[in-house]
Simulated scan of single mutants.
Amino acid sequence: MAVKELAVELGMDHVELVEKNRVREGAMLEILKCLGEGREGKAAPVDSCGLDAALSRGLELIEWGKKEDSDNPDIKIGKGMCILQQGSGLPGLDQANCIVKMLGDGSFVVQSGGADLGTGLDTVAAKMTAEILCADISRVTVQSGDTDLAPFDTGAYASSGTYFSGGAARNAAEKLREKILAESARLMNCSPEGLSLEFPGKVVGGPKEMTYSELAWHTQGGEGSGQLIASASFTADKFSFPYGAHFAQVAVNVRTGKVKIQKYYALQDCGTPINPELARGQVFGGVLKSIGHALYEEMIFDNEGRCLTTDLRSYGVPMIGDIPDDFRVELVETDDPYGPFGAKSIAEISVNGAAPVLANAIHDACGIWLRKWPFSPENVLRALGKIE
Rank of each mutant, 00 (worst) to 15 (best):
V3I: 11
K4M: 15
E5H: 12
L6D: 11
L10R: 15
D13F: 15
H14D: 14
R24G: 12
R24P: 13
E25K: 15
G38T: 01
G41R: 04
G41A: 07
G50K: 01
A53C: 05
S56V: 11
L59S: 09
L59Q: 12
E60H: 11
K67V: 13
E68G: 09
E68L: 08
D69F: 11
N72W: 06
I75T: 03
K76P: 00
K76G: 01
K79M: 04
I83M: 14
M102I: 00
D105K: 06
D105R: 10
S107T: 09
F108Y: 12
F108Q: 08
Q111D: 09
G113D: 00
G118Q: 12
T119A: 08
V124F: 07
A125M: 10
A125T: 09
A126F: 06
M128K: 10
Q143R: 15
T147D: 01
A150G: 07
D153K: 02
T154H: 02
G155D: 02
S160I: 01
G166L: 02
A172Y: 00
A173V: 04
L176V: 02
G194V: 04
K202D: 00
Y212D: 04
G221W: 06
G226Q: 01
G226V: 01
Q227V: 05
Q227H: 09
S233V: 03
T235A: 10
T235F: 09
D237W: 08
D237H: 11
H246Y: 07
H246R: 05
C270A: 03
F284W: 11
F284R: 13
E298W: 07
N303K: 15
R306D: 15
C307I: 13
T309S: 06
S314V: 07
F327L: 06
T334L: 06
D336Y: 02
P340C: 03
G353P: 13
A355D: 10
P356S: 02
P356I: 04
A359S: 06
N360F: 06
C366P: 00
L370Q: 00
F375P: 03
A383K: 04
E388A: 13
E388H: 12
